[in-house]
């Protein structure tokens, strides 16, 4: 990827990270850690990868994203706002009464949200349904599903992986945000899903392991996925929970905690533009 474009994406990702902190700080609740870990991938999807038109969010031919780890919606809402689905001003209403920015994604009321999600394990199945509909209708759209590495402890996820492979959903790209942490601690201590690459391969996926914060890596994985026509793709994205805010990085308690005023100021000062 050219440096100019990479810097552009990096700056958008920084804006999205600032939006995430703003939302959670204003709401005094929400999930900053897992939102920050997917910020770069969400940026790439909404600003480079996906075939979408913010002025026509229900276009039947659009690419879709299902945020199966729905609690990370501050990242999704930030991307949608920055991409022009609605005003960034609305981000201030996140989690407040009468806002369409619900605590977890609501497809009925939020422009650009393709599937309601939040109860872990269900989004990936819905993504399979959307991908299957695309195949049945002979449409060319692609479906992206972002899951957490804690979320995949849900049995339904593996039912869905079996389904995706059985029905050759090559238009489905699963992204597993492997940040290594879940509410009760490290995934490897709470309930290990490793070796994940082997499991995904055994379930019939084309597997790519990437650095979730490297745009070259991200681009190369999505390009390969697009050219894989005989099976679904799983991108295992090694990420840092809380990425970009020093005191949140790899700290499990930032899964679902809002920063206080001082922490907010520090976070925002660390998320300045790169140029």
């Amino acid at each position: 990827m050219e440096e100019i474009q990479k810097n552009e994406l990096k700056n958008i990702a920084l804006r999205i990270r600032r939006d995430i902190i703003e939302q959670v700080y204003n709401a005094k609740s929400g999930h900053p850690g897992g939102s920050l870990s997917i910020a770069d991938i969400i940026t790439y999807l909404y600003f480079k990868e996906m075939n979408i038109d913010p002025s026509n969010p229900k276009d039947p031919d659009r690419d879709r994203l299902v945020l199966s780890k729905g609690h990370s919606c501050p990242a999704l809402y930030a991307a949608l706002a920055e991409r022009g689905y609605f005003s960034t001003e609305i981000l201030k209403t996140f989690r407040k009464l009468d806002s369409f920015l619900q605590g977890h994604p609501d497809m009925k009321n939020t422009p650009g949200v393709d599937m309601s999600s939040g109860s872990l394990g269900q989004g990936i199945s819905a993504a399979c349904g959307i991908a299957l509909a695309g195949k049945l209708d002979k449409k060319n759209y692609r479906v992206y599903a972002i899951l957490g590495d804690g979320e995949i402890e849900e049995g339904q996820v593996w039912e869905a992986f079996m389904f995706a492979s059985h029905y050759c959903l090559s238009n489905l790209c699963v992204i597993i945000d492997r940040n290594g942490l879940q509410i009760d601690g490290k995934c490897k201590d709470v309930m290990s899903s490793e070796p994940l690459e082997d499991k995904m391969q055994a379930f019939g996926f084309d597997v790519k392991v990437i650095d979730a914060h490297d745009f070259d890596d991200i681009e190369s994985a999505f390009n390969t996925a697009k050219n894989t026509t005989d099976r679904p793709t799983a991108i295992i994205a090694n990420s840092v929970k809380g990425k970009g805010v020093s005191f949140m990085e790899n700290v499990v308690s930032w899964h679902g905690t809002a920063p206080n005023e001082q922490q907010y100021e520090q976070a925002m000062s660390e998320l300045k533009e790169v140029r």
Partner: peptide, 18 residues
């Protein structure tokens, strides 16, 4: 297959596609 939880959410995805 014998996977009702997945089936119900797959149905949701199909319905979300019209």
């Amino acid at each position: 297959g014998i996977a009702e939880a997945n089936m119900v959410s797959v149905a949701a995805g199909l319905a979300a596609s019209g």
